[in-house]
Design a protein around this nucleic acid. Sequence first.
DNA 1: ATCGTTCATCGTCTATCGCCGATGAACGAT
DNA 2: ATCGTTCATCGGCGATAGACGATGAACGAT
Lengths: 115, 115
Amino acid sequence: MTESLAEPDRAASALPTCTPDSRIVAARFAALSHPARIEILKHLSASRSCCCREVVDHLDLAQSTVSQHLKILVEAGLVRFEPDRQRSRYEVDHAALADVSASLAALVDSCCSGG
Amino acid sequence: MTESLAEPDRAASALPTCTPDSRIVAARFAALSHPARIEILKHLSASRSCCCREVVDHLDLAQSTVSQHLKILVEAGLVRFEPDRQRSRYEVDHAALADVSASLAALVDSCCSGG
DNA sequence: ATCGTTCATCGTCTATCGCCGATGAACGAT
DNA sequence: ATCGTTCATCGGCGATAGACGATGAACGAT
């Protein structure tokens, strides 16, 4: 029997394809894995007014595209959203961002101490 | 002519859709944006032997899939690769990982100080 | 009441991701 | 010489990302 070649019911396996923790960390990094979103984060923190339009003017992307990027950042918990009349108010969640940074620092630390 | 609707030569615009710096940082985060790759990084640092096969055993993914993930990590500069007979030797580049962490820390810092 | 502005969402299109099995090269062991 | 193991790569497939234009809702101003 070619057990080593055939899949021994991989789905039922108890091997940790990826731990829940890894999933969460990876999801946070995914939100940061696009240059436009990095740029948006920088702009949000540097600017005082944080409506979608202003980001569009600064970034040279279609309004719909920017809106989607903002949504991704909000869903990742890195940016807070507050509807304000017809403008939308976006601002960086510094604590969440610091938390992601800490996660990465912890990973680096575990990599160094583990070796 | 609906000039306001048509694109006013967006490509020729000098607006920074994304700075080179943002591109680089985003590319690094992209390599970290998958749970399997996070898991691989943790395993590489915790284990002494770092051949592809061992990661495959630990991770419950097809060998070809793991090989691709490793390649992505190597191309991102986060993992060093050294062919060793028929085994491949992979090890975490701690300095590069620390560098990414520093980049994120700098982003967090700019977000805090900028406001 | 009407118009202009801002914004989120929808539908579409293309490119890329992530997974797999299959294949062949490289190498050690018999 | 032959076989088993390890590995990278190829080709294919389904799902997702990322971009856009169009549309309609919400709101301020006239």
